[in-house]
């Protein structure tokens, strides 16, 4: 059977593809944020598989890419949080979260 690194490497490649497809096809912006997180986690699993292959000196994996993964996870979380905050402000202002450029002009935001 395949070794662990190749198995999860291929799994990561499939995750990136699935995430990319969902990112393009799903119209709801929140679905696009989720799809983007799936692409991100696919890339992270790919780096994790490479780090797993680099395991030496008594460690299960190469610590340098694993440390970068931890940094990547935190930054990915912050980017998702910012995207969701933007989306919610858009939903509150325009009452619709359409990203379609030809959407009817949203009513001017009436000061609540």
């Amino acid at each position: 059977m395949m070794d662990t690194a190749t198995l999860f490497g291929l799994c990561a490649a499939a995750l990136v593809g699935l995430g990319l497809y969902a990112f393009i096809v799903n119209p709801q912006p929140l679905r696009k944020i989720i799809a983007f997180n799936v692409i991100g986690s696919g890339v992270f699993v790919l780096v994790g598989a490479v780090a797993y292959r680099g395991g030496a000196a008594g460690w299960g994996g190469d610590p340098v890419p694993q440390a970068l993964l931890i940094t990547g996870l935190v930054v990915a979380f912050c980017a998702s949080a910012l995207a969701i905050a933007l989306l919610q402000r858009l939903a509150r202002e325009a009452e619709s979260v359409t990203l379609a450029s030809d959407a009817p002009a949203a009513p001017p935001a009436t000061p609540e």
Binding site: A51, Y52, W59, G61, I70, L73, V74
Partner: peptide, 18 residues
């Protein structure tokens, strides 16, 4: 998956944040 890839620190981060 991170535990199977011997990245326990990454698993901890994924568990807490993800």
């Amino acid at each position: 998956v991170w535990v199977q890839l011997h990245g326990v620190d990454v698993a901890l981060t994924e568990g807490a944040i993800g």
